[in-house]
Design a binder for these strands. Structure first.
Length: 337
DNA sequence: CTCGTCACGGTTGAG
DNA sequence: GGCTCAACCGTGACG
């Protein structure tokens, strides 16, 4: 995007829809795409209605069909080459036992303990980085030992994810992971590499600090991370709706399509209980993406019993039709160390 | 007209 | 702390 004076407010595509180059569409829109498709609306119509390129609609639907997830894949980062969860865990342990331990000593111990061999042992600098970035506050973090695997996005942390362009997504979007045929999964892993996308996730440390003061009107969604988070913690289904975190969805409401008359929007939209884009909404390009939408939509998808969970205050008729395919299966694909 | 695909310019984040 | 690079993104165009 060309920035003249305006920060990253997105661009407008040929259909008049707002998008941000390089960033995923908001979950609310992704979800709507899937829902409309399930209502029998053709992709080309969905594209026009939501003002999302048909290529994108096609991609999202294809992914949904393949993985059962509407979520985008994990962006950025790289596959841990040496600092696998196991390695990190050991490093953490060493550090806990001997807070004064040097990185090189850790390295030696990793070798000595057979955790790594000479080919995959992390460099001293890698270890230092891990110590610095991930295990910095051991004294306060030791409690993670007991339940790091249950670390989940709490309401508090969820709040941190409230960005205009936010996704909180506990479950991953996992496009890449080969979903076993006939086993659609909403929680597909975003990456093929083991367990977590980030070491921090492995440690159960995360989140808030990363997200905190982010005032950018268009801040990164960081879905990816949340995906990772979710992998460990999405058990806390009470916050989730169909793999989406309610809070984030609410926020996504802000994402907007510059609301002004969509040609056919009315009819289709009505079908799904969606209100037309409010034109009066406050005006950041991302505001006001149809207030009713996300919450209503997401609610009560199959994997949470469809019948209006406490989570689905706005439960709407679409619910049933949106039965997200066999949800819970996914974790099978997860690697543990 | 519809839809699958892909080059492109972009962002992200672990290493 | 900055760089690299491979992952992902949605658009737009082509067939």
């Amino acid at each position: 995007m060309h920035l003249s004076t305006e920060p990253a407010f997105g661009e407008v595509n040929q259909l008049g829809g707002v998008f941000v180059n390089g960033r995923p569409l908001p979950n609310a829109i992704r979800l709507r795409i899937v829902e409309l498709a399930q209502l029998g609306i053709r992709p080309c119509d969905i594209s026009r209605q939501l003002r999302v390129s048909h290529g994108c609609v096609s991609k999202i639907l294809a992914r949904y069909n393949e993985t059962g997830s509407i979520l985008p894949g994990a962006i950025g980062g790289s596959k841990p080459r040496v600092t696998t969860p196991t390695v990190v865990k050991h490093i953490r342990t060493y550090k806990q036992r001997d807070p004064g331990i040097f990185a090189w000593e850790i390295r030696d111990r990793l070798l000595a303990d057979g955790v790594c061999d000479k080919y995959n042992v992390p460099s001293v600098s890698s270890i230092s980085r891990i110590l610095r970035n991930k295990i910095g506050n051991l004294s306060q973090q030791s409690h993670y030992d007991s339940h790091k695997q249950h670390h989940h996005p709490t309401a508090a942390s969820a709040l941190q994810y409230n960005h205009i362009y936010s996704y909180t997504n506990p479950m991953a979007a996992g496009a890449k992971v080969p979903t076993p045929p006939g086993m659609p999964c909403t929680m597909a892993m975003p990456r093929t590499w083991p367990s977590s996308h980030s070491v921090t996730d492995i440690l159960g440390i995360r989140s808030i600090t990363d997200q905190v003061s982010d005032t950018s009107p268009y801040h990164s969604p960081k879905v990816e991370e949340w995906s990772s988070l979710g992998r460990n913690g999405f058990q806390s289904t009470q916050h989730m709706i169909n793999g989406l975190e309610k809070g984030s969805l609410d926020q996504e409401v802000k994402y907007s399509q510059t609301a002004s008359g969509l040609p056919t929007v009315g009819s289709f939209v009505a079908a799904s209980g969606m209100t037309p884009y409010p034109t009066s909404a406050p005006v950041s390009p991302y505001m006001a993406y149809g207030t009713a939408a996300p919450t209503g939509y997401v609610t009560g998808h199959g994997w949470q019993h469809t019948g209006g969970t406490p989570l689905s205050p706005h439960n709407c008729d679409i619910t049933a039709s949106l039965a997200f395919k066999s949800m819970h299966t996914a974790r099978e694909g997860e690697n543990h160390f």
